[in-house]
Simulated scan of single mutants.
Amino acid sequence: GYDGSAHRARQWQHAWYADRDLVLVADRGHERELRRHAPTEQDRDKVRLMREFDDDAVAAGTLEVDDPYYGDAAGFDRCRDEVEAAMRGVVEHVREQLDA
């Protein structure tokens, strides 16, 4: 049910750190790369694995989103489910930050 036709991937721009409070990444490779290039420690702390916000993923120790690109349709369904579960936690996190 998602329409991704207008979505365009872009490479991360270092200037974006200043405009963001939270930077979500799918896997440890992205996490390492964005933290390595962060201009400050505060900016490094903004970078978080998306699935850190899914209690079930944390309990299972599966914090990376599986890349479905070279797989079948079931892999894309699994990826969508992982992202949706994480987003529920992200929304709760943001609410808590706004209330603080």
Rank of each mutant, 00 (worst) to 15 (best):
E41C: 01
M50H: 09
V25S: 07
Q42T: 14
G61Y: 08
D45H: 14
G75D: 03
R78G: 02
L34V: 14
H37N: 09
Y70L: 05
M87K: 05
E52N: 11
V91Q: 11
E92I: 05
D21I: 04
R10V: 08
G75M: 01
V25G: 08
Q11A: 13
H93F: 09
A100Q: 06
D21Q: 13
L98F: 01
A18Q: 13
E82I: 09
L34F: 13
R8V: 14
D77E: 10
R48D: 06
G75E: 01
D19V: 01
D67F: 12
V90E: 09
E52V: 02
D67N: 11
A73R: 10
R88I: 15
H30C: 02
A57R: 13
R95D: 01
R51W: 13
Q11H: 08
E64F: 06
A38V: 11
R8P: 02
V83A: 13
H93R: 06
Y70D: 06
D81V: 11
R95T: 04
G71Q: 04
V90S: 10
Y2Q: 15
R80V: 13
E96F: 01
Y2V: 15
H93P: 00
D43Y: 07
E82V: 10
F53A: 05
W16F: 09
A74H: 05
R44P: 14
H93G: 00
T62A: 14
Q13T: 02
R28V: 03
S5F: 13
C79F: 06
D66G: 03
G29I: 00
D99T: 04
H14D: 14
D81S: 09
D67M: 11
D27A: 01
D27K: 00
R80E: 14
V91N: 08
L22T: 02
K46D: 12
Q13V: 04
R78P: 01
A9P: 01
F53W: 06
Y70H: 07
T40K: 08
D43E: 10
T62E: 14
R8Q: 12
H93C: 01
H7W: 00
L24S: 10
A9D: 06
S5T: 15
R32K: 07
T62F: 01
V58N: 10
V65M: 05
E33N: 08
L24Q: 11
A59Q: 06
E92W: 00
R28N: 02
R28Y: 04
Q11T: 12
Y2L: 15
R32A: 05
G1A: 15
Y69A: 11
A59D: 04
W16M: 11
G89H: 08
A6Y: 07
E31K: 05
Q97G: 07
Y17V: 07
A15R: 05
A18L: 09
C79A: 12
R20I: 03
R36M: 10
A59V: 03
H37D: 10
R88V: 15
D77Y: 05
D56T: 12
E92H: 02
E84Y: 11
G4Q: 03
R28E: 08
S5I: 12
A15I: 06
A100M: 04
T40F: 13
V47P: 15
F76K: 04
V83M: 14
A18E: 15
A26D: 00
W12C: 12
R95M: 02
L22P: 03
D81C: 05
A6K: 15
V58C: 08
H37Y: 07
A9Q: 07
D72Q: 08
V83Y: 09
